[in-house]
């Protein structure tokens, strides 16, 4: 596609090759059809698209959490199926879309965030210590470390999930709507933290989001999904500034604009 000519190709961190996925059921439902996508080392690749188009399904497949019906998934060139759970967890970490069901309700926040460290055998005291420090960085002071998820707001839970994903310094983050539960000031803080991690240590990020502003700010490239297929891929500037697909154009023009909404006529403002 539209790529600069002659540049050396970076390593691929995570790759889906011709992946299809069907959910079993009374009517088998094909959620992904022949999807190929490649996350390059150190880049942020955004995935946007219609609600229900298969983005979360794709993220679970890339994480090796859903079985593959067809196609291959490679993590740094190795078949995802050939990696043990532990190896997978060392290389990549998820932030799931739903902060309500993705945190263990019986554990304290510090324990939840420290889980990846504890799982690889680090001493409890130092793991909990680092977890508390990282909670600070996502804006949850030490007072939150001993609370359980049920005592947190939606956005506070989401921040704990982000801290958990970052704590073990993974090479790849697969984030499904990581900031949609956050107010814009906390969102900015988290996005800056992610950018800092990218600069400091080549973190590769697959970022599923509905927020076009977040895409414009964070992503190097973007893939647009609809009905289980990728309809357009390209650099973030190409896709956002000169979209080729009608659907992409529709998507961009539907963004509710803070100032546009103020000045333009809103269709429902007209008297009936």
């Amino acid at each position: 596609m539209r790529e600069p000519q002659g540049a050396p190709l970076p390593r691929l961190a995570l790759e889906a090759r011709a992946v299809s996925h069907s959910y079993p059921g009374h009517q088998a439902f094909k959620a992904l059809t022949n999807v190929s996508i490649a996350l390059r080392e150190g880049e942020t690749l955004a995935v946007v698209g219609e609600s229900g188009s298969g983005k979360s399904t794709l993220s679970r497949i890339l994480l090796g959490l859903s079985p593959l019906s067809e196609g291959r998934v490679l993590c740094f060139g190795k078949d995802i199926g050939s990696l043990s759970r532990r190896e997978r967890a060392a290389r990549m970490q998820p932030v799931f879309q739903d902060p309500y069901s993705s945190l263990n309700p019986r554990h304290t926040l510090a324990e939840i965030v420290a889980a990846p460290l504890l799982a690889r055998g680090e001493a409890r005291a130092s793991a909990l210590n680092r977890a508390t420090g990282l909670l600070e960085e996502v804006g949850l002071g030490s007072a939150y470390a001993r609370r359980r998820p049920s005592a947190l707001s939606g956005g506070q839970r989401q921040r704990a999930a982000i801290a958990r994903a970052l704590i073990a310094n993974p090479e790849i983050l697969v984030c499904d709507e990581p900031t949609s539960a956050l107010d814009v000031s906390v969102q900015a803080q988290i996005l800056n933290l992610l950018q800092q991690q990218r600069r400091e240590r080549k973190l590769s990020v697959l970022l599923i989001t509905h927020n076009i502003g977040v895409v414009a700010h964070m992503a190097d490239r973007v893939a647009v999904m609809r009905h289980g297929e990728i309809v357009e891929t390209g650099s973030v500037r190409d896709v956002l500034l000169e979209p080729r697909e009608d659907y992409t154009r529709l998507l961009i023009s539907s963004v509710p604009d803070l100032h546009g909404g103020l000045h333009s006529e809103r269709p429902w403002d007209a008297a009936p």
């Binding site: 007072a143 800056n192 956002l240």
Partner: peptide, 28 residues
């Protein structure tokens, strides 16, 4: 808060901008 909203126009390639934030934390 309004100044923390990211723009939907991507910045030119190679230019990375830091988003404005509100320093500090909400009181307990």
């Amino acid at each position: 808060l309004i100044s923390c909203v990211p723009s939907t126009t991507p910045s030119p390639a190679g230019v990375s901008v830091e988003l404005g934030t509100i320093p500090g934390r909400v009181p307990l």
